[in-house]
Design a protein around this nucleic acid. Structure first.
Lengths: 222, 222
DNA sequence: TGTATTCGATACAGTAATGTATCGAACGGG
DNA sequence: CCCGTTCGATACATTACTGTATCGAATACA
């Protein structure tokens, strides 16, 4: 995952020279936070517990993040970056490659994107937790907006590009399209709350099918 | 809502004679808890805060509940009871009444049930929070099971009865049917996280449409 | 290798929440 | 109206977490 980035939040403190050691510490803290948050919730995850999970003391934490919220935003950005990078890469790789015989372009792209973004119980729980945490602290709505806006914009751009690749165009507003996509993703993955299941593979298939269905029903051939 | 019940959890301590005063206190605590949990999350909702919201001190709390979990289970049961009672009542009332001219039986029932169960931001946030809280404490899975099983059973029974009323029968397993219904409900309501919206009414309509669609697609005329 | 600086550990004070033990007031039965 | 019981308030000890200030070790750079 590892997004190297100076500022931990939207506040982009561009001046800090980052050593490799610091970057590694930061990353270990982020990874640990994801685990602890999934397990205990964003509220229940104390800075203490996150540091323990990462094998540090709180000194390391406060040296890298100003507050827990700061870390949450960093986590979101990390995930967003990873997702966007994955989609971009897939679009690049398939730019001039022919679609596998007999396969639909959309199906193919959805498959690849989902494969590149492993969705597991921990990831899903963490996403929900962070979402709730944000929703619950509306005083930070502007900051959240600053984090989400670029993500939404870029995601929209990539979706459009994917559609163009498939020779399609949206029949609904871009905004609605994103809402639908995200809802589809969440619906298809929330069952993961309840842990790994015998039929898990097929349930991720359900997510895949839901997404392709949504994409096709909100667009039309050019 | 008010479900009067001796035990606060599945542990059914049948021996306590409940005074009206006690029942009222208990109810006020439950109502306050719903509000505080929606606002702060299940973890963030301290016993202290719940009591303050209810206008009591913690003395009242510990006199009525042994622990916060105890209260959470009571809250779930309360909601379940309310939902089931509502459905039962609607089925009873419409038992021999003719369906309004031009209306579908299923549409009619779904409308009535949703109308009887106001779904608002607070309710939805609280449901999510409690769900997460439960999921996160798997050591209590058996207790949760004890609470959920009767609810699922009775809900399934009522759904079957409603279907029979409409001259339909399930084409999927009962278990799958419940999963689909609950997923539909959650999908249709999770947007409420983000607060009241201009289009809120129409979005509850979306929930209604989703539910009728799901019901019809998982059953067939007899 | 020597040295300046960065980074993370440690110690400390302050705050919030928990659960228990006890007390006094409201309430119901007679 | 009175008395015994119930119920909720208060006070206390304890625990967990936070944030800051300081110190020592690891690291980069010459």
């Amino acid at each position: 995952m590892s997004v190297q980035q100076t500022g931990s939040g939207p506040k982009a403190s561009a001046a800090a020279p980052i050593t490799a050691r610091r970057a590694a510490t930061r990353q270990r803290l982020l990874t640990a936070a994801a685990a602890v948050i999934a397990e205990r919730g964003a509220n229940g995850a104390s800075v203490e517990a996150i540091c323990e999970e990462a094998g540090f003391t709180r000194g390391a934490f406060y040296s890298n993040f100003s507050t827990k919220e700061d870390l949450l935003y960093a986590l979101m950005q990390d995930k967003h970056q990873f997702l966007l990078d994955g989609i971009r890469r897939i679009l690049d790789e398939t730019a001039h490659a022919p679609v596998p015989a007999g396969a639909d372009v959309i199906d193919d792209l959805v498959d690849k994107v989902l494969a590149a973004n492993p969705v597991d119980r921990q990831a899903r729980l963490m996403e929900t937790e962070i979402g709730l945490y944000m929703v619950r602290n509306p005083e930070q709505a502007p900051v959240l907006q600053q984090v989400m806006q670029p993500f939404h914009d870029e995601l929209a751009r990539l979706v459009m590009e994917g559609l163009a690749r498939a020779g399609r165009r949206l029949t609904v507003s871009t905004e609605d399209a994103l809402t639908l996509l995200i809802a589809g993703y969440e619906t298809g993955t929330t069952h993961l709350w309840f842990g790994p299941h015998p039929g898990e593979q097929s349930e991720l298939d359900a997510c895949r099918r839901a997404l392709t269905l949504i994409i096709k029903s909100m667009s039309e051939p050019v």
